[in-house]
Design a protein around this nucleic acid. Structure first.
Lengths: 149, 149
DNA sequence: AGCGATTATATCGTGTGCGATGTATATGGG
DNA sequence: CCCATATACATCGCACACGATATAATCGCT
């Protein structure tokens, strides 16, 4: 079977369109909290580990400073976090949650439950899907590095 | 287990980060062809079914005209497709491939092979992953419609 | 035929992503 | 101590996405 693939047959498109579908699911839930979807992901990373350098956050989220700097500035302006130079190394910037940023974690818990329900509620299957995707991601990142990325 | 989830435990983040990883994989392969990743997806859709209205393309790609119109204009400027009003209904715009747009399909075949290899090459497993993601997407879209999306 | 509602596309503003480049700080070899 | 190099972050430009809104064409009801 060597015919050209239909768009619905491409794994890359499934990932692309599920990503947008999930963002569309989150958006109306996040807007009342004054958050965008990427901003929410930044908060999730900080709730797990606070007071981190921009690069370390970027390693978690797979984002470079050209994306993170303006994003973090907007979040600073919204009083969700602070950005302060590290006195030990003036090059690096420490990102830390404010009380407001921390306080949103409780509301996010309800949000997670809501999203889980929209996804079908079968937690075991969703966890399996997540693990397969992470395996794929790790493989792609290895590939990238081996080609000098 | 009711503790807050780590970012790597969120399915939404797996999808988000795999999507970017795939885009990063495609980008260096598409740039020599003068294409961006979303533009490539538009071409895949048109290779399957040419001469379509913007809305119909949008239904395939899950994109609205606010995204598609400028994207298609750029592709028209790159001589990949034409945009012409439908004489039967002057509201609608017919998007059709040019020879150049059609000719890229051959080169894209090599590209698909290359991507498949980077993903690990186990076609059956990748197809299974794709099907699970499509099931999830359909569930999310149904959810969206049932809430008046 | 007339006109409000619907449909199809376009425009605008904001917020990501990212390649390319710039700037400031630290580090290490001589 | 000096300077090349590396590191950490910032800036710029372009291309998506998308909510909100606008515009033009068609439809449907009377």
């Amino acid at each position: 079977m060597d015919r050209p693939l239909n768009i619905d047959e491409l794994l890359c498109f499934s990932v692309y369109s599920v990503n947008h579908a999930i963002a569309r699911l989150y958006r109306p839930l996040l807007t009342p909290l004054g958050l965008t979807y990427p901003q929410y992901l930044v908060l999730v990373a900080l709730w797990d580990r606070d007071k981190r350098r921009v690069n370390d956050l970027g390693a978690d989220l797979q984002l470079d400073t050209n994306t993170l700097t303006p994003l973090l500035k907007r979040m600073e302006a919204a009083d969700l976090l602070t950005r302060q130079r590290n006195p030990q190394d003036e090059r690096s910037l420490i990102v830390a949650l404010t009380d407001k940023g921390r306080s949103l974690q409780e509301k996010a818990a309800e949000l997670t439950a809501c999203v889980l329900e929209a996804m079908g509620g079968d937690v075991a299957e969703l966890a399996d899907l997540r693990d397969r995707l992470q395996t794929l991601r790790d493989r792609l990142e290895g590939e990238e590095r081996s080609r000098g990325g």
